[in-house]
Design a binder for these strands. Structure first.
Lengths: 244, 244, 244, 244
DNA sequence: GATGAATGAGCGTTCATTCAT
DNA sequence: TATGAATGAACGCTCATTCAT
């Protein structure tokens, strides 16, 4: 990324160099993880890939979990940066824009979803509470800002609904990936009779789900808004969506 | 489950007793996993918890992964049994029924979601291919049958859509759980300013998401069906759900 | 071997049936060992191969080691029976006869040498002392009788020399096999420059060695006898075999 | 060996210290193996004996088999060094010299033969092919060089015969040791009637055997050379060594 | 700051043997 | 006699982490 490439054995003195080295470690970890998404790389492998000694990695991250959390955080940041850029557009966004954003920055970032899957269950146990809190505060902040942007583009959304919708979308993205991740169902079994549902592509399936989620969510908010406007017939919780 | 409770050291002679012991081992593993959802219990711990010798566990499961896969399978089976029972009802089901079912059998089964999360990424790598295939075939079968049931209760769903919708719901269930799992955000941080979105309960948040997903999905299918009926104006991909 | 084939679950009541079953177990072990000469079969495998339960094997052999000792004993017995038959011949035996006997009954019995190799180092530790003594007494007896036979066929051999020569021959057979056993040097390496000596066949190499051993031994005995006859020039220990 | 004795916990920084530690581990393994020649020491025992942690041993040897192979290699090397020194002598060597060499460096190295016995059958299976090949190439090289030296000292030996004779000698050494190894026949049984042949000492018995093997081998080569010289009467394969 | 040798708790798995049935 | 479920000590190996250099 930077032009300053610190070689092995070279010391990172100032803050910039340190940041660079920190990022180099994360990139090494990501590279390894993309190669073998089914398992977390060992610290020795990460150090090797970063052309550093094992101990050096511990100068930048106080534990393996913290390093992985940082890597995940970098993914999330990158994604939100792209989203903020998109939200700055003047013409109104559509569901398709959100789907395209997801396709490009989440599905397209090979390590994003496998890491997210392993992260949540495994990682957070031993991470220092303060680090973890900072991580979540940051996410919450990003989510809140992005949510506000969404609310601008999709009217009828009350305050907070944008973030909620994004959260649910993210859940869909993660969850569906885990059900359909490559390697989960072996290729030769994928086309056996009865296994049709495992033969779909993740991207397509996700698109259908996100489209359903967003349109359903927006309609519900719209209806809720309508109920607010003329409280004469306060349509109760819709029991069955088949209308008429 | 059975009245025959095999005590420690008692031999499981016939098939029934063996099934019982197998289940006892799974229950022991589940108990441990509920206590520490962040990590998989070791085989030694499982054996201890089942009051058996380590070697005995290996008489029933040929590896740790296979045991965990069996436990996950038990969860899934139990859930689908409840779903089949519900689908047999004569009056049409509503989204609320599906939400309630989820609440009771997935959210209520403490080990279900943590295990599902760890399963997909960690477990299936080293499981014998035949075992894994059988597992997926079984899931596919359950899903297909349940999907067909859903299609009966929610008209306008073409063949296969029921299973797809269930799959996407399951993805939402899993994904959202991972984002909001207890312990992920420490309680004292949950109510800091900016963290509002983490203060919601998983069950409530899930309910909103599922409701949106189902209603959005059903509407889209309905519109698709409408387009089929009068193909004169083939409303293209709806670009933005805000209608009018 | 016998026509009486005891099936699984059938009981061996009289001594004959017991002997038959004992032999069936040994044969099963031998079969397995031939299939995988690099490792001793487990008791479970032996029991399976003999179509018996694990516990049953322990009715016939009080430990794994004892079973293997018995199998080795069976090999040795079979070999000596053939040797006794050969020694009964009236015309004098030659070194070639001994070589042929070895080729047929030791090299040709696939499990003989691998088992002998593993036996000596591993087996004898935990075998009951009385069993072990009986085994060695039996061997000693066979060896003494065969040695006496050899002395009849090869004059000039003093009492005891026949057994000694057989013992040394056996040592040569075992030792050479261990140096040259198949699989020891991988085939692709066998013909690299510098590895010529590993490319020979065991049978041929052994024949050369045995011929040298026997002729050298017989000559030395002859010379010793000559010295006895005319003690005038008591040729001392021959220092270098290059005569003149 | 070196004067630098690394204490427990001290770090082996440079190549020399590492070599020293590697040797210390091998020596620890050897010590244990001499104490219990009937079984291979466990890695935990070796580490303890070397006053190191288990993991440290794996820094120097990538598996148990590789470690044992290295120990055996050390034995072999030491032996060949002694042999090379002996072969440099100007006055011609005798069979006695070879016997004495064997006595001192093979019989006298308590772990040599038990390890050689276990090595061949057990160890080499799982060793990385490249490591194994290198091992055998080294042995082949040593053997070829030593064989050439033997040919210089014992004329009439054609090229390659020296290595062959050494190989056969080594086989006798190993094989006889396995038949007579201490502990094999319990002392109280050794002098029972009929067990005379087990009462001899290994060293003495080996001396007789080697003397026979070498003299027989040398005579055969001499005769072969003679046949080459005057091919008129091509004395066929000597059928029975009793001449006249 | 950087290194990498050393650590050691921990893990999954095997298998000879026992003994209730 | 025969069975095979149960046992549990033993084993080889991994890897996150520490700390002397």
């Amino acid at each position: 990324m930077t032009a300053l490439l610190l070689g092995k054995g070279q010391r990172a003195i100032d803050a910039l160099e340190k940041e660079e080295r920190r990022n180099a470690i994360l990139s090494a970890a990501e590279r390894l993880f993309v190669q073998h998404p089914e398992r977390l790389p060992s610290m020795a492998e990460v150090a090797d890939a970063a052309r550093l000694a094992k101990g050096t990695v511990y100068l930048y991250f106080s534990s393996k979990e913290e390093m992985l959390l940082a890597l995940h955080g970098r993914h999330v940041h990158t994604f939100f940066q792209a989203m903020f850029k998109l939200l700055q557009r003047t013409q109104p966004l559509t569901i398709d824009d959100m789907v395209a954003l997801t396709r490009e920055h989440i599905v397209g970032t090979a390590a994003f979803l496998p890491l997210a899957a392993l992260c949540m269950g495994v990682m957070e146990k031993a991470v220092d509470a303060e680090i973890r809190n900072r991580f979540f505060l940051e996410i919450a902040d990003l989510l809140a800002r992005a949510g506000a942007g969404v609310e601008r583009h999709f009217p009828n959304l009350p305050r907070g609904a944008g973030a909620q919708l994004l959260n649910q979308s993210y859940a869909q993205i993660i969850g569906l990936w885990q059900l359909m991740q490559p390697g989960c169902v072996p290729p030769e079994a994928r086309f056996r009779p009865g296994m049709e549902m495992f033969a779909h592509s993740y991207g397509d399936e996700l698109e259908i789900a996100l489209r359903a989620l967003w349109s359903g969510y927006l309609i519900q908010q719209q209806e809720a808004a309508a109920r607010m406007a003329k409280p004469v017939a306060p349509a109760p919780k819709p029991r069955n969506t088949r209308r008429k």
